[in-house]
Design a protein around this nucleic acid. Structure first.
Lengths: 345, 345
DNA sequence: ATGAAAGCGCTAACAT
DNA sequence: ATGTTAGCGCTTTCAT
């Protein structure tokens, strides 16, 4: 007695009909009589039939899965995005396959090919680099629709046609800098990191805020990798400048961590000795004393929107690529105070 | 001209050999001549052949994928575990499929079945509940080997035979409590959460530390869900006791967050008004002022070990289930100080 | 409206 | 040691 998983054949036998009729019923083909549908569905539930994904995939059918290529899931920002995406996908009957790329473009390219081999129906991309040749090459081989999450490809080309969900980092940063300028700060140190869109946009936001008021370029921007080490090094460099900044802005949660380490080392008190703004809410920004002002965005929604954009294109291949922009909000907090001359060293 | 993906057939034609010879070379069959191997491999690279996972899966072969069932990836603890597991799996040529369960046992059961349908070669389980009937039922239908991550099933049964990686929460907690007792604390409030092994073990650790010194039961334990809301509520309850505790222990990072909220609300200073210990290192425990003493464990290693245990059983089906126990370390920090009489309210 | 039959790309049993 | 062939479970012509 074969205790094996029941197949289409078993359902057909059970219902006393042909195999292809069962297939038609299950795939919602229009040309099926009501009686046929009932008998088949009855048999299906009776013997507990479940379609075999692999047999379907072999025929080139949909796999009901979507791949997420992401730099580092242990970054709370990215994990929340993935949560939002998964939520939307599950509702639509899709599952999210997830692979971590350790922020390594080579691995990222490899993972893209891996998803291709697994016949994912679409790809969600939060790439760690926007201009890596291997990644671009790998993406060229993907036929399924693509959605970029807060990223912009250097040259999207005519082949890729990715949709995208972007965040208004520029506006958020402009608001943050304006707030600091309102408090009297003129020398602001900005710690940015990464080679992606968000760093460029934040830089522009800083520039705009000064330009808006016709103020001379009183800011300094230190760009580097998107990690805590750079956050600390950049902070140190900024605080060693002859014209020491009276306020710092950290462009991300990892950078913030490094920045805070350096401030602690130097015994500087946030909010009084020095004002501080960070980007993206985390436990730290919320729980530290004083709480840290942040440029905030809805990460869960970001992931959900990305998934929705993707689903739309999966379900209707004629849909063209779409770009959606999500707002950011500046949340002032006691980490920002009025200027005080000569912070203690 | 078919621009389609090349198949075994194309390789065979190109190399001027039979299809099965190609299959044999690729699957490392012993009965192949050196010449055959060379010609086939040459053809493979020439036309860029890549095996089709679905055709393999259809034949019941390995899919080179492992599923991870996890409650909440946005918990840094779990994301680090998944990072460690993925690392080990990738080295072995496996990829990690990951599905989030929102801490909902029903979803968890559903996800287990989903992985089964995807023919994963093994399952890594960090279940949110250890005794859910649906989850147990779902697990019964899995033929692939199972590894529990810091969990213990109520009744493992003879069918499941799961391997497991456990953590010595009991020892870590005993060390933490001993440290507090050394500092003179006698009334210690413990905030525990969740229905899994770690909560039981931590409770035992507390009991043992008091018993070891022949001290009367001076602790109070407040058990509840594993989230920030319970952390805050439990803290409030403990601080409202007639015999107010002079030290608190939070059994996890979410609980800690709630606890800190309540302490801030009451204006209590950690380390002076009240001593505080938490479980598991996070940004918060490290960056707060003063830093928070923690019972620490190597989460990356935890994930890696789980993956290794799983791989061993995947690669040799005769291997029986194994349980490995990982150490925990208590890290004393300035959040713990000597007892002070009557904390300010 | 329904059933029979041909593959999808691969592996394994069988032949040589 | 190598080639031939029969399926794995499904979708999709193609008949009827």
């Amino acid at each position: 007695m074969p205790q094996a998983r029941p197949g289409l054949k078993d359902v057909a036998k059970r219902a006393g009909v042909g195999i292809s009729s069962v297939s038609r019923v299950l795939s919602g083909h229009p040309d099926v009589s009501a009686g046929m549908r009932d008998r088949v569905m009855a048999a299906v539930t009776e013997i507990g039939y479940r379609p075999d994904i692999f047999a379907r995939g072999l025929r080139g059918g949909p796999t009901m899965s979507v791949g997420l290529v992401i730099g580092d899931i242990s970054n709370p920002l990215l994990s929340e995005i993935s949560l939002g995406a998964e939520d939307a996908l599950r509702r639509a009957g899709y599952s999210l396959l997830f692979v971590n790329s350790m922020n390594d473009p080579a691995l990222e390219a490899q993972n893209i090919l891996l998803f291709r081999d697994r016949h994912v129906d679409g790809l969600l991309l939060s790439l760690s680099a926007e201009d890596d040749a291997d990644v671009l090459t790998a993406l060229q081989t993907i036929e399924a629709p693509l959605v970029l999450i807060d990223r912009e490809l250097d040259d999207p080309g005519e082949i890729l046609r990715p949709s995208a969900v972007l965040c208004d980092h520029r506006g958020g940063m402009r608001a943050a800098i304006s707030h600091l300028l309102d408090l009297g700060h003129r020398r602001i140190g900005c710690i940015l990191g990464g080679h992606a869109r968000f760093a460029r946009m934040r830089r522009r936001g800083v520039e705009e805020a000064y330009a808006e008021r016709g103020l001379p370029t009183g800011y300094s921007i230190v760009q580097g990798p998107l990690d805590a080490a750079h956050g600390q090094a950049a902070t140190s460099r900024l605080l060693d400048m002859r014209e020491q900044p009276t306020a710092l802005v950290a462009g991300g949660n990892q950078l913030l961590k490094g920045c805070l380490r350096e401030l602690r080392l130097r015994g500087l008190a946030v909010g009084t000795d020095l004002s501080l703004v960070s980007c993206d809410e985390t436990d730290l920004t919320e729980m530290l004393d004083p709480p840290i002002a942040v440029v905030r965005r809805d990460t869960h929604q970001l992931g959900r929107t990305a998934a929705e954009l993707l689903l739309r294109r999966i379900q209707d291949p004629d849909e063209g690529p779409v770009t959606s922009v999500q707002p950011t909000v500046f949340v002032p907090r006691p980490s920002c105070g009025p200027v005080r001359e000569a912070a203690a060293t």
